[in-house]
């Protein structure tokens, strides 16, 4: 992944969400959410539990199908049909809080299954690709192990590598370090920082504010299914417009 020139970043919107709403039964989890993400942009999303952060990014890769509004990925509008799936599969990778590795497959098999089955790579091409990404997340020596034999931090790095093997343009992270023991958080964040620096378009739901300050171009604060604050990182931390966002930051930032 080459560094993407800044000029290109500014004018190419890879994700456009316009007035997106999502209901679970009668409960509205997303309320008219709009956001644009440019190619190469790093967005960090925070907000209290239940505010709709997961729902937001799950709508982007259609794990949840939104009820109204439009989501456009790389110029293609998502409509819940087969073509949308293809657009998602070609563009969007995702890393979950609970890793969700395939426990019955080795690390290497976890990484090669997608490329072999859906990107039509040969076994040896896929293995080469997988080893390359395992190097990047710094665990090539674990290739033949099963997920349960790895630590949480290692498992999450495998999950990141598994997504990268699909060579997506956008990576979504849903609280990737929340399920980890404290001493393993940094090894995962380091990998994510490197990924951000390589120019990957990222949307991360996380409360790791040190990480956010370091890599985010844009910060988003959500509450009750709405985007309450959306601003450039420096402004977000120094002078957020909304009161709720200020209060939230006060709670989670060390004083």
């Amino acid at each position: 992944m080459a560094q993407i020139p800044k000029s290109q970043i500014d004018n190419q919107q890879i994700i456009q969400m316009r007035s997106v709403s999502k209901f679970f039964g009668t409960f509205q989890a997303l309320n008219e959410v709009s956001i644009d993400v440019s190619l190469g942009e790093r967005v960090v999303v925070c907000g209290p539990s239940g505010s709709g952060k997961s729902t937001l990014i799950r709508c982007i890769n259609q794990l949840e199908v939104h009820n109204s509004g439009t989501i456009t990925i790389d110029g293609h509008q998502l409509d819940g049909k087969k073509n949308s799936l293809q657009v998602i599969h070609d563009n969007v990778g995702m890393v979950f809080q609970q890793f969700n590795l395939f426990p019955h497959l080795t690390v290497l098999e976890n990484l090669t299954l997608g490329p072999v089955r859906s990107r039509n790579l040969s076994k040896s091409q896929a293995t080469e690709l997988a080893m390359q990404y395992l190097e990047r997340v710094r665990i090539p020596e674990q290739a033949e192990k099963y997920p349960t034999q790895l630590s949480g931090g290692q498992q999450q790095r495998v999950a990141i590598a598994r997504s990268l093997c699909m060579e997506p343009k956008i990576m979504l992270f849903d609280e990737p370090t929340s399920a980890l023991d404290p001493e393993m958080i940094n090894e995962v964040l380091d990998v994510m920082v490197e990924l951000a620096e390589s120019g990957m378009t990222m949307i991360c739901v996380t409360h790791e504010m040190g990480f956010a300050r370091r890599v985010a171009d844009t910060m988003v604060f959500m509450d009750h299914g709405e985007i309450v604050e959306l601003s450039e990182t420096k402004k977000f931390f120094e002078a957020p417009d909304s009161k709720r966002c200020q209060e939230f930051l006060q709670q989670i930032l060390p004083h």
């Binding site: 979950f96 969700n100 395939f102 089955r117 859906s118 999950a159 598994r162 997504s163 093997c165």
Partner: peptide, 23 residues
């Protein structure tokens, strides 16, 4: 089987048949 397995399978672009067969 945990719902997360289907979701992970979706993120590596496996269709219904492949998800059933391999995951």
């Amino acid at each position: 089987i945990d719902k997360g397995q289907y979701e992970a399978s979706h993120t590596v672009a496996l269709g219904y048949m492949d998800t059933m067969r391999f995951i």
